[in-house]
Design a protein around this nucleic acid. Structure first.
Lengths: 199, 199
DNA sequence: AAATACCCTTAATATATATTAAGGGTTCAG
DNA sequence: CTGAACCCTTAATATATATTAAGGGTATTT
């Protein structure tokens, strides 16, 4: 329990941003989350598998994506430091996932299993609120993304992405950003040129 | 407490689909939710207001939308019987909303205020789980919608909408569906013609 | 250091979707 | 009952975005 505590401090700080935690709660969090290193291009979830963990990213970055029949990838979500990633549908229903979660950079994560999370919900009620709030925040972000998708041009969506996720944008290849925005990387290239000319 | 109990039974049935409720929990739910009738075209939330209620739809149907500088409406969400609707961002942060929630049909709703919901979370811990699950379900639906938006053509999105929300599709004018799908109603008209010819 | 895979850009052409305009059909409020 | 809103469709034209193909640049692996 001494090794890796340092990484768990980020999780504890994150969890106590909404509600402060008691000593007991801190202890149980530390005991139930397992640390894992993931290499660049390493998968923590593969299409067809059952998603068995709720994952907190300590460092590095992941993408969650699907591949259609034509072999094209579509990025549903990125998760960097201090963010959560999981396929909720597969996780709770224990059914095969349709997505991949892959490390874009060498990463360190903390994971809790479904069983342990349910134990946590049942025995430390505060975590129901904590995880409710985590999901609510993610929900609002997604809703904003849907609004962008139905109302904004590719150029507006890209500008917005740069503005909303500046550090992420600097770390990701444009191909990955294009896949997230729902455009081809060739078109993103044009959009970038047009934006540059507007300066 | 006798009048309107019938409408609250739908809420109770909905809430106990994930966890069964005790007598106390049922009583507090009944006491904290207020029933309201809304006419067609009536607003339960107006841009600039603070969203003060979490709303459960007993009957009828609502749309949640924004209007851009050009006056165009974009439908973020529909909510019919047995669904929840609220602008979470405005509701929790108590700041002015950017959206409208308007009845598309004469409707009956049950509403709880932010204060009462927080009271509920604090004193009846089970509802933390219940509302966590409600939000998780909505999150998965939104995620699926984002995937559609970035990966599917307008025709695929429309087919999917018909398949996923058959009763809703039959009740809504096509203009509203187009606004939800992120296309113009003229183009939806063409999509419908093309689909009809494919039979 | 070479080889391979990845990444970014450009441009020509093709397709999906928006815009504008117009007409007819329905519903709803006065 | 009647006009005013709304709704749906069509078609011509315009714009946004995809596809294909090609070349050069950068990492990563061998």
């Amino acid at each position: 329990m001494q090794e890796g505590i340092k990484n768990k401090e980020l999780l504890l700080a994150h969890m106590s941003s909404a509600f402060s935690l008691t000593g007991d709660e801190i202890e149980v969090l530390i005991s139930l989350f397992a640390e894992r290193q993931v290499k660049r291009r390493g998968f923590i979830l593969h299409q067809g598998d059952i998603c068995r963990h709720f994952t907190f990213v300590v460092s590095g970055c992941f993408k969650m994506y699907t591949i259609d029949r034509g072999g094209k990838e579509f990025n549903l979500e990125f998760a960097a430091e201090n963010e959560w990633i999981s396929d909720l549908n597969s996780f709770y229903a224990e059914k095969p996932t349709t997505v991949y979660i892959e490390a874009i950079e060498p990463s360190v994560i903390l994971q809790i299993t479904r069983q342990d999370l349910i134990y946590l919900y049942g025995n430390y009620p505060k975590f129901n609120s904590t995880f409710r709030i985590i999901i609510e925040r993610k929900y609002m972000e997604l809703q904003n993304r849907v609004l962008q998708n139905i109302s904004a041009t590719a150029e507006e969506r890209y500008s917005n992405f740069l503005h909303q996720f500046p550090t992420l944008a600097a770390r990701l290849p444009n191909t990955q950003i294009a896949s997230y925005l729902g455009i081809t990387s060739e078109f993103l290239s044009k959009v970038r040129k047009d934006l540059a000319h507007k300066r």
